[in-house]
């Protein structure tokens, strides 16, 4: 393993210390060192917006804490849900007296820990509503959408939910908008190379050279199929097709495109993918309103990329245009 690590058992703690030093104008560590909060959190009179998840996905989740964005984030071990206590502490850090939404991804551990945190918060009189992201189309068939995992579409859910909260909306309005945002997202991942958990020391799955895993998850969950690696344009076309076949959008729909690297793919290759993605989306009669390209939601040093396409209405389009100040440029 060729990695910048002090102690494999403390990579998360070390990451957070460095992160807060780099972005002290925007974020702070809570008393619970596994909770990152916006510098000005909680904002009185505003609905709090929190999320949480395992580490190893940086800049998610912590990079999306800031002004007009997330108020607090619960941080877990690498690829492992934060504790119920950390979700609860994040909720408390975000509580400005009008309730808190917890917008998180559909994973067994997160579901359990959030459920327990919501109960703890209820004892303090904090009203918490949740939205569970399930945008990954290859993780379950369309009729079992509730089983699908949450992936990079979460970023757009956070942005819309947080912008709605910043505009003064009520708890229920923020929840409903975040729910609509994620319902309008579909994502797919393609993996070209595996990743290694620092504390484990070797990759826990393999992708044979010359092949790609279509539909891979954010923790290396196996995809829908393994195929020979193709030219970027062909991969991009397949990704668009899988996402839009699931989405079934009427012509003229405005969309946002989000392409994220999984950690070890050079950024230029993400633009190569976007070149075809954007042409394909237009060729299908859709209008591209916004595009985000970069390492926005990674999986340690996995080689690969995810594509998210979000259908926009006037509200979501406006919310995506709200300026934010968080460590990631959005």
């Amino acid at each position: 393993m060729q990695r910048f690590i002090n102690d494999p058992d403390f990579v998360v703690e070390d990451t957070l210390r460095g992160f807060v030093k780099a972005h002290s104008d925007l974020v702070k560590l809570a008393d619970n060192p596994k909770v990152v909060a916006a510098a000005d959190a909680p904002i009185l009179g505003k609905v709090g917006v929190v999320t949480g998840g395992g580490s190893g996905h940086e800049p998610a989740f912590i990079g999306y804490v800031g002004r007009n964005m997330l108020d607090a984030v619960a941080v877990g071990e690498i690829f492992s849900s934060p504790t119920a206590k950390s979700f609860y502490d994040a909720i408390k850090m975000a509580d400005g007296g009008r309730g808190v939404v917890c917008l998180y991804g559909n994973y067994a551990g997160d579901n359990m820990n959030v459920k327990m945190a919501v109960k703890l918060a209820a004892k303090d009189g904090i009203d918490v509503r949740t939205v569970v992201a399930n945008d990954d189309v290859c993780s379950a068939p369309p009729d079992e959408r509730e089983k699908r995992r949450g992936v990079a579409g979460e970023i757009l859910m956070w942005k819309c939910g947080a912008a709605k909260a910043a505009a003064g909306a009520s708890l229920e309005q923020v929840r409903a908008t975040a729910q609509k945002a994620i319902d309008n997202c579909r994502s797919i991942g393609v993996g070209l190379g595996p990743c290694t958990l620092p504390a484990v020391g070797h990759p826990n799955f393999a992708i044979e050279p010359g092949t790609m895993e279509v539909g891979i998850g954010h923790h290396g969950e196996p995809g829908a199929r393994v195929e020979p690696l193709k030219r970027a344009a062909d991969v991009a076309r397949d990704m668009v097709k899988t996402v839009l076949d699931d989405h079934n959008l009427p012509a003229e729909t405005e969309v946002a495109i989000l392409i994220s690297g999984l950690g070890a793919t050079p950024t230029n290759e993400l633009y190569i993918l976007n070149d075809t993605v954007e042409s394909e989306v237009r060729a299908r009669g859709l209008k591209v309103a916004r595009t985000y390209v970069g390492n926005l939601f990674t999986s340690l040093e996995m080689v690969g990329a995810t594509l998210t396409i979000m259908a926009l209405d006037e509200e979501l389009k406006q919310l995506l245009s709200v300026e934010v100040a968080c460590p990631v440029r959005l």
């Binding site: 395992g54 877990g76 071990e77 492992s80 849900s81 934060p82 504790t83 119920a84 206590k85 950390s86 067994a108 551990g109 359990m112 820990n113 327990m116």
Partner: peptide, 12 residues
């Protein structure tokens, strides 16, 4: 386990 581990196994 509930306050320090997280994941699925912590709460379970």
């Amino acid at each position: 386990l509930m306050t320090e581990i997280g994941g699925s196994m912590g709460p379970l």
